[in-house]
Every structure is written in structure tokens, then in C-alpha cells.
Design a protein around this nucleic acid. Sequence first.
DNA 1: TTAATAAAAGATAAAAATATCTTTATATCT
DNA 2: AGATATAAAGATATTTTTATCTTTTATTAA
Lengths: 140, 140
Amino acid sequence: MLSKTSRYGVRAILYIAANSNENRLIGVRDLSVAIEISQPMLAKVLQHLTKKNLIQSKKGRNGGYYMTSLQKNIHLLEVIRELEQSEYLINACLLGQKHCKTYDQCPYHDKVMLIRSELRAIYGTDTILNTSTKINNFFL
Amino acid sequence: MLSKTSRYGVRAILYIAANSNENRLIGVRDLSVAIEISQPMLAKVLQHLTKKNLIQSKKGRNGGYYMTSLQKNIHLLEVIRELEQSEYLINACLLGQKHCKTYDQCPYHDKVMLIRSELRAIYGTDTILNTSTKINNFFL
DNA sequence: TTAATAAAAGATAAAAATATCTTTATATCT
DNA sequence: AGATATAAAGATATTTTTATCTTTTATTAA
């Protein structure tokens, strides 16, 4: 459904949302341990998130990553949109047809529409902060 | 959700179910045109389906592929199981965590369970034949 | 103002997924 | 039997995704 990189991004962002703020930054090393993603890989992912303005970074000594409350206040769906460049994966034809006439000929159309609503509900209802603080031991 | 190859397989199998029987075989060339997959690629996919006993093949002149009614009488879910080697994609953690404690800590658990039921319903309700003959112009 | 620390950026590598090509085996028609 | 059509099998190539490494730039504490 999501690429591995996007899933890494989601994991990272949920953790950062739950465990950082303007005065409490998280470094790559610590984060890498916490969410079990290799340091170099995670670094790339974080760079990407930063460029997309989904998280903040601060260079130099005592630097690290964090999120502002504004940034914590968006839906996961937004994050996915940024990470995947679109809602492609949510919208794509289940059978991979280029010209799937979804609206009236695909045998799965109606059912697929249901799934898509469910997915949007999952990703689009709670804000990141909400989601991530609900369960604190999620990453244990 | 499914790999590209699996989706090719599903497309092929739905078409073959709708358009073949013991006395009416379909060659790779024709099929390739019908469902818009390159010939070499499709050939590989069909070989795979044959090995898994999901379709029949007949070599030599006037050979080709077809399905018996027995073969048309299974659920798409079976096909997916064979093609993906498991229900991995349906069951995997949405966030790609190795040790997702799905049952009580994942923030998405309940919602994800819903989605999975939906998916199973889509793939597990109708037989292939049912699905594919419902709409004949699906591939137009 | 210098040393240390941390992220950014870009280059490279490795692995996995897709796609294609070539040869071989098999069946059937004439 | 010989020619032809067709799938099977295996080797190879290409592309995409994932992962890593190296160098640079910025920050700040001492």
C-alpha cells in the first residue's frame, strides 16, 4: 500500500510527534534505536521529511529533529500525500489496468470504493499528535 | 497491495476464465493484445499460473491456454495466495514494523482489521467465473 | 576562535522487481 | 516424416527501490 520509505517516514513522524517539541530535539542516533531503522537509511528519510516541511531540523551541536505543534496538527493523509507524491496508491486500479473504467465496468468497483473510504478514514480522521499520543508504548 | 506480477496474473486469469474452455484455447499473442501486457512478460506470468495449476496449457500447434470449470470455480483469494506465496500483503503491518503488537498496541489496529475484512470479502466472495463473466466488457 | 557535534547533500552500492531474449521441447497439421 | 506453431525453461538485461558511504555545511559550547 505504501512504499517502505513512506512507512519509515510515518513511523518516524509519529515518534517525533510524540516525543519532541521546540525545546526537546531528537537526534538520528536515538531515533534510529527507538524505531528500529538503520541510521543511514533513517537519515535520508528525515532529510526528505524536512524538505517537505513535515518536521524541523536544527544543525550543529545539540541539534536534531523536532516538530512544532502546527506540524503535529495535520492528518496522516497529508503526510502520505507528500511522501507518495500523490494519493496514487490509494486511487490506483486494484488490477493495475491503465484504463480501468472504474465507474461502470470494473468488477470490483463498488467494493473498491468502500475500501478507499475506509483507508481515507484511517488516515484522514485523527491528527498526527492524536494518533501518536494515544498509545505511548506503540514503539516498545 | 499486490505486486505487479500478481496483478498481471489476476487480469490474465479473469480473461481466460471468461473466454476459454476445454475446446477453446487462447494463445499468448491474442491474450497479450486483449489485456495489454507485453508478450514476453505475459508468457512468464502464464507459465507461473500453469505451474501452480491455476490454468491449463497445451503445447504444439493449436496449443494455448484454457481453464477447466473446476479451475474457474475457486475464489480470487486462492489465486492471490498462490501468486503471493501467502496472504502476506493482506496481513502485513501497515507501518512495516517487524514486531507490531497488532492486537493491542498499534494505533491503527481496529481500523486495519476492518480493512482486512473488506479485502477478504472482495477477494473471497465470488468465484473467478462469477466475477469475470459478470462484466464482459471489462477488458474493452 | 577552535573543536566537537549534528544535519544536509550528493555519490555510490546492493538488492529486488520487472522485463526480455534465446533456446528447447512438444504437439499437430499436411 | 517434415514443417510449423506453440508453450516451457532458463539465461540475461533493465529498472526501480532500498541502503550505505563520504564529504560538506552549520551550530554551539568551551
